[in-house]
């Protein structure tokens, strides 16, 4: 564990906590893409298959349970909670997320470290996480005013993978130049997808104005 990865995990955890707080406190999920949240549940389920078979550390197991639990509860709130589900922008959140999942799965079948169920699904989760934010970014462009909590949520979500990129650079130089192309390239794509959001988020923060993404 290094400080960059710990900061990345904490940023990731904070983003999820902020989203849960927004939903529970305001009883609203306006501006949040259910498609993206469902993709994240698939990412965690396919990535943490070895949760009960391989013990790495107390921290690792705890965080996996927290990420699984919170992401599933967010989808539950948005789908089934009687008040929250009324606030879901169903007609704007129209991104066909299967168009993202299927190519990622096919790619995982083609490019992976080893051809086992666990490894192919883990690789699928890495590819899927890279593009899972797209429905959310599309929804942000469609929704006129983005509330602060939603903006902060997306920013922290993008920041966590950027910190993981730094963690991978650090590990490359400190752990006998271990090369890990699949997470590296996926993480690079993932962080790059946030580039224009980061630009408008920082601009709105500097000028102290409402966050607005160009249509």
């Amino acid at each position: 564990m290094n400080v960059f990865r710990l900061a990345g995990d904490m940023t990731h955890l904070l983003s999820i906590i902020i989203l849960l707080l927004k939903i529970r406190a305001t009883k609203s999920c306006t501006g949040i893409s259910l498609k993206t949240q469902e993709l994240y549940v698939i990412v965690f389920l396919t990535r943490y298959l070895d949760l009960f078979t391989k013990y790495i550390s107390f921290y690792n197991t705890t965080m996996k349970l927290v990420f699984l639990g919170t992401s599933i509860s967010i989808v539950w709130y948005m789908r089934y909670h009687k008040v929250v589900k009324q606030t879901y922008n169903k007609d704007q959140d129209t991104f066909r997320h299967y168009f993202l999942a299927i190519p990622c799965f096919l790619l995982a079948l083609l490019i992976h470290h080893e051809f086992t169920v666990i490894e192919v699904l883990w690789t699928f989760s890495i590819y899927l996480e890279a593009v899972a934010i797209l429905p959310q970014l599309v929804l942000l462009q469609r929704s006129r005013n983005i509330d602060n909590l939603t903006g902060n949520y997306v920013f922290l979500l993008g920041a966590y993978r950027a910190l993981y990129l730094v963690n991978w650079v650090y590990r490359y130089f400190t752990e006998n130049h271990l090369v890990r192309w699949i997470p590296w390239l996926s993480g690079l794509v993932q962080t790059t997808l946030y580039a224009d959001f980061f630009y408008y988020y920082i601009k709105s923060w500097k000028n102290n104005e409402k966050l607005q993404l160009p249509a």
């Binding site: 080893e114 993981y164 890990r180």
Partner: peptide, 10 residues
């Protein structure tokens, strides 16, 4: 092994 070393992240 390299395998182990790469799966200790979330």
């Amino acid at each position: 092994s390299e395998e182990e070393a790469t799966k200790d992240e979330l």
